[in-house]
Amino acid sequence: MADFLGLTFNESTEVGKAVKLKQRIKKEKSILIIVNDIWEEFELECLGIPLGDEHKGCKLLLTSRNMNVLKSEMGIQKAFQLEVLKEYEARSLFEKMAGDVVKDRQAIATEIVKRCAGLPVLIVTITNALRNKEVYVWKDALKRLQRFDRQGMHQKVYLAVELSYNYLESEEKSLF
């Protein structure tokens, strides 16, 4: 946020940085702050986000896979539940992103889509990693995803990112 607002910190403590960020945010007439993928409760004030009546033009959007974190622990005002993609929607997204190669790899594609559990972030990340790759790469990706079937979604997301990185060309990896 600080970079986006053109803010640099001379403060050495987290509290000092939060105070400076809050002062800078208050100078904006209106601002939308998005805190994505919250896993557990934390104090928004520690980030320097104005709350309540401190800044009427400051709107805050929090996202989490766990509605309880938002409702009970974070005390949000309004909650909107977004569901995962339906099976046909997930398949359609995968096919659109992968292209015509899916026609020759129907069985593998179907299994990969199932392992993505309707999560667009997984589908997009894995499809981007597999696009223009040989069939053996697709089979390897499916085997890796199958190993994570009994584990949580966080591990699957991590695996998708790892697969995506591993399948990058060496020039692309150097960017990271």
Rank of each mutant, 00 (worst) to 15 (best):
A98P: 11
A90F: 02
R105Q: 15
E111S: 06
S30H: 10
Y165G: 08
L122G: 06
K22G: 01
G16S: 09
E83H: 11
V84G: 08
V69P: 03
Y167V: 02
D104R: 13
L61Y: 09
Q77A: 13
R91M: 15
V19S: 04
R91H: 13
A117P: 11
Q106G: 14
L47K: 01
F4E: 11
L82S: 02
A90L: 01
I31P: 01
G52S: 04
D149M: 09
S12P: 04
A160P: 05
S92A: 08
V121K: 12
E172Q: 05
N36I: 09
A90G: 07
A129I: 06
S92M: 07
V69H: 03
S170V: 06
G57K: 02
P50D: 01
E172A: 09
V19H: 02
R144E: 13
S72M: 13
I33C: 08
T13W: 04
R144F: 09
T8C: 13
E134T: 11
A107N: 15
S64L: 06
A90H: 00
G118A: 06
K71G: 14
E14I: 14
G118L: 04
F42R: 00
E54V: 01
Y136Q: 14
L130D: 04
R105A: 10
L61P: 07
K17N: 10
T63H: 08
Q146W: 10
L32M: 06
L130Q: 02
T13C: 06
G48T: 02
R131Y: 14
K114T: 15
T125W: 01
E171T: 05
F9W: 11
K133N: 05
R131G: 12
E162Y: 10
L60T: 00
C58Q: 03
K22C: 07
C116P: 00
D100W: 15
H154C: 13
K29T: 08
L5N: 03
K96Y: 08
C116H: 00
I123S: 03
K59C: 03
L130E: 01
M74Q: 01
V101H: 07
L175E: 11
E89Q: 09
V35H: 04
L51G: 01
L21S: 03
E43V: 10
K17P: 06
E111H: 04
G16Y: 09
I49Q: 00
F9Q: 12
L175D: 11
M67T: 12
K156L: 11
D140S: 06
G99R: 12
F94M: 05
E89F: 02
D100Q: 15
T13I: 04
I123R: 04
Y158L: 12
N68Y: 11
E171W: 11
V113L: 05
